[in-house]
Design a binder for these strands. Sequence first.
DNA 1: GCCAACGTTGGC
DNA 2: GCCAACGTTGGC
Length: 156
Amino acid sequence: MTRKRYWLMKSEPTDFSIEDLERVRTEPWTGVRNYQARNFMRQMQVGDGVLFYHSNTDVPGIYGIAEVAATAYPDPTQFEKKSKYFDEKATREQPRWELVDVSYVRKFAAPVALEDIRGHADALGEEFALIRKGSRLSVLPVTAAQWKLLLSLEKK
DNA sequence: GCCAACGTTGGC
DNA sequence: GCCAACGTTGGC
């Protein structure tokens, strides 16, 4: 048993928000079509902590916490012709894309905005992919120290 | 293997 | 809506 790790996962709230997760409790994280992000999901273990990030919104930032509820398995949407995530090169014998299930933990009273996060770039480190220039990675690792710092930015 | 063209992400 | 940065595709 490896020890608990931490991640950050982005979603556009018009697509799927922390409120949606609160309602459904557990959700398969469909639609990741980036190999680096997929590879991070393959490393996830049940119980790992997830920062739920809203992108493409008025105040981009972390809106709450979730946790990994199931380890990686093939993303079914890659096989669904009508899905916007359909991938004609994927087969059931040789899937390309995987996902994890994510469960709701809690919602922040106020988001930890990207702007605030940038203000702590020195402490977070320049290798932190969320604020690295040009990085668009939608699933990324967070160290225990970064996790602690980011949670401390939550307005009480 | 190179690289131009294209599509996507995501902040602003 | 704009656009910089990035990843992928496909011709050669």
